[in-house]
């Protein structure tokens, strides 16, 4: 009897989850709108610099000569260089690479981030994959981010992607590491407060501006590198770049950021 209704039950559950992505997004917006009532929620795309006037002034000065500029220029040259079979990135990505607002996508049963898509394109055309932390990958994604500036994040979570979305959400809310922090503890519960001199930024907008030049790194690096750094800071195992858990975390954070303006690459302290 129960088994007969199982498929129906599944349909109800999963259609409820479909709505949940939108509900999660609304909840995130409402949370930060309430916590920072004097700041428009869309302003969090600038992270900490939306919260701290003095740090913002310093940052705007840094942005006058953007430290990621060379990465964008070198990335454009790489993007335009034909593959050995005569094709190129233009055969994989529309609009001169202004496609970042459509990533990550859910394809072939997995979350395909921008970096993964770049490698899929290369392999399809007989080229070798790039290492995810390679300079070339950072340059290409810097260029793609730049070409995609001012687009609004426009990813949809299809029904078969809901388990991946849910796992990403789970990751976000799970405590980890020796210090026992979840992402939400720092970036929701105590968001805006200071850990020593560092202000904790809002998660709404964390995904809009990658790759990013960080003064701390002295180079352009990826969102997943930042995830790994965060995990390390709380005494948790840092996972490999583009591993399934990081891709799914990115998917969750991007899905709830739908409609936000892309402003990458960025510079950060």
């Amino acid at each position: 009897m129960f088994v007969r209704f199982l498929p129906v039950l599944f349909m109800i559950l999963s259609s409820a989850s479909m709505a949940d992505v939108e509900a999660d997004r609304e909840a995130f917006r409402a949370f930060y709108a309430k916590r920072f009532s004097s700041i428009p929620v869309e302003a969090h795309v600038d992270g900490v610099y939306a919260l701290d006037e003095a740090k913002r002034a310093q940052w705007l000065e840094m942005e006058e000569f953007p430290p990621y500029e060379f990465s964008v220029d070198d990335g454009e040259a790489l993007y335009d260089e034909p593959f050995t079979d005569g094709s190129g990135y233009g055969d994989c990505f529309a609009d001169g690479g202004a496609v970042k607002h459509l990533y990550p996508r859910f394809e072939g049963g997995e979350v395909v981030t921008m970096e993964v898509a770049v490698n899929q394109c290369r392999v399809q055309h007989g080229m070798e994959s790039l290492a995810y932390d390679s300079e070339e990958m950072m340059q290409l994604t810097s260029y793609i981010a730049y070409a995609s500036r001012d687009q609004l994040i426009d990813i949809k979570v299809p029904e078969d992607a809901l388990p991946a979305y849910e796992r990403g959400k789970q990751f976000y809310y799970s405590r980890r590491g020796q210090l026992n922090f979840s992402c939400s503890h720092c970036h929701m519960q105590i968001v805006g407060s200071q850990l020593r001199a560092e202000v904790l930024s809002a998660s709404y907008g964390h995904v809009t501006h990658w790759p990013t030049y960080r003064l701390k790194w002295q180079e352009v690096g990826s969102l997943h590198r930042r995830f790994a750094e965060c995990n390390g800071q709380v005494g948790a195992e840092a996972l490999p770049l583009q591993s399934q858990p990081y891709r799914e975390l990115e998917y969750f954070l991007t899905a709830i950021a739908r409609g936000l303006l892309l402003n990458g690459p960025a510079s950060r302290k």
């Binding site: 020796q178 210090l179 026992n180 922090f181 503890h185 720092c186 519960q189 105590i190 005494g235």
Partner: peptide, 18 residues
């Protein structure tokens, strides 16, 4: 600190052997 407040952000210095 999570014994008193399960949602505490304070690291459990003893329980996690920090």
């Amino acid at each position: 600190a999570t014994i008193r407040n399960p949602e505490s952000v304070m690291p459990p210095y003893g329980r996690h052997g920090v």
